[in-house]
Amino acid sequence: PECADLRALAKHLYDSYLKSFSLTKAKARAILTGKTGEKAPFVIYDMNSLMTGQQFVSYKQNSVPGQGQEQNKEVEIQLFQRCQFRSVEAVREITEFAKSIPGFIGLDLNDQVTLLKYGVHEVIFSTLASLMNKDGVLISDGQGFMTREFLKSLRKPFCELMEPKFEFSVKFNSLELDDSDLAVFIAVIILSGDRPGLVNVKPIEDLQDNMLQALELQLKMNHPDAPHLFAKLLQKMTDLRQIVTEHVQLLQLLKKTELEMNIHPLLQEIMKDLY
């Protein structure tokens, strides 16, 4: 009966993951391997293809007021602003997912905020890996593909922004998790009882213990040939914290040195006093 409860929990998390996130790993992998039957994504590999691509690839955030003034800014700044808007959208999606985790909305409201503040970037970089291969990353809901070399060719410090995420994604993708595994994994990340400033740790740890059991069983059932997958995946949580720390340091540097650039208020809120 306990196993049945854990399976039901994993199923519930997978369902809300499908409802909360716009582009799943299954869809992204189909696009990346050309198996969708739809047209292939537009490849952005240099400044020319970036300019051409802008006509084909629609950006949701173009409808956001205040974006008009961005058009006169340097390419690096414009690209970064689009990344930011996608991140803000991702925070909204992750919040919706978090609220669907059984027990989450019963936690102290300030603790919910703290869990999201510390968890969202770790979740963003785990799910971003689904959109990446060693050569590039899908953008704009899979309509475009931006190459890793192009991102590396941007001027400093923008060229340093994505490379650590590619390095992580290559290792993370070798674990071959699918969306149903990722759903439980990101619930485990969100419910981390060791985030700084939590008021009431015990109920968070209790919820996470249950999620960890659900994750262990999920991996056993879904990957019977990979006996150490659970342990390997838990190790990735340490790598994620390192990536987030470096990411936040880079954003703080950008905020100081790139005076043309506005950091979105939601991202400022999340980054402030983070690490």
Binding site: E89, R92, V113, L266, E269
Partner: peptide, 20 residues
């Protein structure tokens, strides 16, 4: 609470658009 007002709002409202 003031420090994280957008996060609070996201948690308390369902799918509210994030304004700038």
């Amino acid at each position: 609470k003031e420090k994280h007002k957008i996060l609070h709002r996201l948690l308390q409202n369902s799918s509210s658009p994030v304004d700038l």
